[in-house]
């Protein structure tokens, strides 16, 4: 017996385009697109790596926002995550909830990976990547800042979790 075919993934770009048109927006959002993709080969075995965790969640007190409300890169000691997180983002409020932090900021799962010898350790800080409509801000401001902080923490690799 052949296995059941997997359902087609949700076409999020199309759904978003149709939704914003229904909200009355005339110009469709242009999603970032590149033909190529940079690829870094690991310089050491995974089991010897200090791996950083990057999420799109922010602190519950929204202290990552500037005076105009625009999000900035936020970093936090992985041993002391805040009690509440800002998850005011586009997630599926009909199908699920975000009450369990580990579903989108897997600090404990990363610790288990370290305890199990899959990685050497979780980097000392995790980082909140600001979501922004501007590709340019993400590429020219936020991504370089996250790179700088990962280097400060001696990270060899990174797991980036998208909400």
């Amino acid at each position: 017996m052949s296995p059941q075919p997997q359902p087609a993934p949700v076409p999020y770009m199309e759904r978003t385009r149709n939704y914003y048109r229904a909200l009355g927006y005339e110009d469709d959002y242009v999603w970032a697109h590149f033909e190529d993709a940079p690829f870094a080969r690991p310089a050491k075995p995974l089991a010897a790596m200090n791996v950083a965790l990057v999420s799109t969640a922010g602190p519950g007190d929204r202290s990552n926002r500037d005076a105009r409300g625009r999000k900035q890169v936020w970093s936090c000691d992985a041993a002391a995550p805040p009690a509440s997180l800002d998850t005011d983002l586009a997630w599926d409020r009909e199908a699920t909830h975000m009450d369990d932090r580990e579903t989108f900021l897997p600090i404990e799962a990363m610790r288990k990976a370290a305890a199990g010898g899959i990685i050497a350790r979780l980097a000392r800080r995790f980082h909140g990547a600001p979501t922004d409509y501007s590709h340019r801000k993400t590429m020219e401001v936020d991504a370089p800042e996250i790179l700088r902080r990962l280097r400060e923490d001696g990270a060899d690799a990174a797991l980036l979790v998208a909400i």
Partner: peptide
């Protein structure tokens, strides 16, 4: 926007020698 954000950040990290995986 979350997926685009982490994808753009991952590309920048990769271009600067840090291997990444997006989840």
């Amino acid at each position: 926007m979350c997926h685009q954000t982490v994808s753009l950040v991952a590309r920048h990290l990769e271009a600067n020698g840090i291997p990444t995986v997006v989840l």
